[in-house]
């Protein structure tokens, strides 16, 4: 069941950035942090690119395909999750647009950005939670060893949850950790006086 471990691991890496993003948004809203647009852009890059380019395509093309074939009762759940994936590109564009708008407007643009970012975060959490609590337990229960062999092979190409197949996301992840203020990260982006 290698693929399942990889999906869990990717959810953890993504979840960690989603959580840090919420922490930074809360801090700006409460006036504890100044907006740091490099950090916001880096976090948005990670939480949109990793799912859209790396994670969701693997789920769609391998796991979901096998589950559809093997578990007719999963059709409704798979429809919902696939619809979430398909929405990904549109939601990503909205979030990026909101950041550009905020950067242009200054402080008065925060509320709009905050609302769109909040919606994005909620949708991402909801999606991951559905997969963790409904999809993966069902897959574990119902797929056969032959099903898994095919799925595992496809997921294996991606060696760890932080990097992507060619390491393109490793430096980005590291940059985020080194910018996010404590206790969520080890940086001080947006901390007044830092």
């Amino acid at each position: 069941m290698k693929a399942i471990d990889i999906i869990h691991a990717e959810h953890r890496a993504l979840g960690a950035v989603l959580q840090a993003f919420r922490f930074v948004l809360d801090g700006i809203r409460d006036g504890r942090f100044e907006p740091d647009f490099q950090l916001l852009a880096a976090m948005i890059e990670y939480i949109t690119q990793v799912p859209d380019k790396l994670h969701h395509p693997k789920e769609d093309d391998y796991l979901f395909v096998r589950m559809r074939a093997r578990i007719p009762a999963a059709a409704g759940l798979l429809d919902q999750l696939e619809a979430d994936h398909a929405e990904g590109a549109r939601r990503t564009a909205a979030l990026r647009g909101a950041l550009v708008h905020y950067q242009g407007m200054g402080a008065s643009g925060f509320a709009g950005f905050d609302a769109i970012a909040g919606t994005y975060l909620d949708a991402s959490w909801k999606h991951v939670t559905k997969e963790e609590t409904e999809l993966l337990p069902l897959a574990r229960q119902s797929l056969t060893p032959e099903d898994w062999a095919g799925i595992d092979a496809a997921f294996e190409a991606n060696k760890d949850p932080w990097s992507g197949p060619t390491g393109e996301f490793r430096a980005l992840f590291s940059r985020i950790v080194n910018m996010v203020p404590a206790p969520y990260g080890v940086g001080d982006a947006g901390v007044p006086g830092a």
């Binding site: 953890r12 890496a13 979840g15 960690a16 950035v17 959580q19 840090a20 760890d160 949850p161 932080w162 990097s163 490793r170 992840f173 590291s174 985020i176 950790v177 996010v180 206790p183 969520y184 990260g185 080890v186």
Partner: peptide, 14 residues
């Protein structure tokens, strides 16, 4: 440690 730092340290240990 917070999850973000945990993930970074795991990557470094790897």
């Amino acid at each position: 440690l917070a999850p973000l730092i945990v993930q970074e340290l795991l990557a470094i240990i790897q």
